[in-house]
């Protein structure tokens, strides 16, 4: 390495600086030991460098500048990414695919949890039988008017006509009504003393809340806790009629022969009767 080459390299050398120990300078530094003229030049260079660097270090940024930077940051509150933005912004296609799978699993999980949260119509029936038979607070108010009774049931679907058995059509034998909640859902109850005799309570609620609602609009008869019940589903509503008498009288509510000597006035009533036959 000649003197000019060594000068070129040594111009960029800062003793004790961030380049200390960099092998790039080693050979040029070695030349200083054997070349007094180069060493003198280098010493003069170093003296100037120290003065210049010292001068530059004296420069101070205005204090207001820092305050302005911080204030601007706080005021503007630059878009700090949400965790998911930061995460998704750095992900590859594999990451996205993984995220889609996670979301799908969550969706399915939520669906099944929702389905699992639905209650059993059997449990509902047992509870309603107990309510009908044992609850001393039987009705909220007494009424023989079906419109009053419907209002008193406070059903969300109160605008829909009730699908009543022929013997109860038009509110015949209605004596009172009640509204309450069961598992967060409105349940309406109508209390009847039908002409066929006995005492029947009709519970109506949304069929959606059940995992196993009554399968159709034809009554299914079941005995719960010694009480005969009839259940059916129509227009999205689950119906449960509970007989206090426990006998076969409940089935007679669907009997057209008992319609005060009149023929069945709707095809549905006839069909129900045929189904019962």
């Amino acid at each position: 390495m000649n003197r000019d080459e060594a000068r070129m390299i040594l111009q960029a050398y800062r003793p004790g600086g961030r380049d200390e120990g960099d092998p790039y300078f080693a050979e040029a530094l070695a030349c200083l030991k054997s070349d007094p003229e180069l060493a003198a030049w280098f010493a003069e260079q170093q003296s100037l460098d120290v003065r210049i660097a010292g001068g530059l270090q004296q420069v101070r940024a205005p204090s207001r500048l820092k305050a302005e930077i911080l204030a601007q940051h706080k005021a503007a509150e630059p878009p700090v990414p949400h965790w998911w933005q930061a995460w998704f912004g750095r992900q590859s296609a594999t990451g996205w695919a993984f995220a889609v799978v996670i979301l799908a699993v969550l969706g399915v999980s939520l669906f099944w949890n929702h389905a699992g949260s639905r209650t059993s119509f059997q449990d509902y029936s047992a509870q309603m039988v107990n309510t009908a038979v044992n609850d001393p607070h039987h009705v909220d108010r007494g009424t023989s008017s079906l419109s009053d009774g419907l209002a008193g049931m406070s059903l969300p679907s109160g605008q829909n006509p009730l699908a009543l058995p022929p013997q109860l059509a038009g509110g015949k034998g209605l004596t009172g009504c009640r509204a309450f909640f069961w598992h967060g859902q409105n349940v309406g109850m109508l209390c009847f003393r039908p002409q066929t005799g006995g005492h029947v309570d009709l519970f109506v609620t949304s069929a959606v809340m059940f995992a196993d609602p009554p399968p159709g609009d034809q009554p299914a008869f079941t005995v719960y806790s010694g009480s005969m019940t009839a259940s059916w589903t129509q227009n999205g509503e689950a119906y449960l009629a509970v007989s206090h008498d426990g006998g076969e009288g409940l089935k007679e509510l669907w009997s057209p022969e008992k319609l005060s000597g009149k023929k069945a006035n709707s095809g549905r009533a006839v069909n129900l009767a045929l189904a019962l036959d």
Binding site: R51, G54, G55, L56, Q57, Q58, V59
Partner: peptide, 9 residues
């Protein structure tokens, strides 16, 4: 003397 910051800048 030591160069001041203004001169260097």
């Amino acid at each position: 003397r030591q160069l001041d910051g203004a001169t260097v800048v």
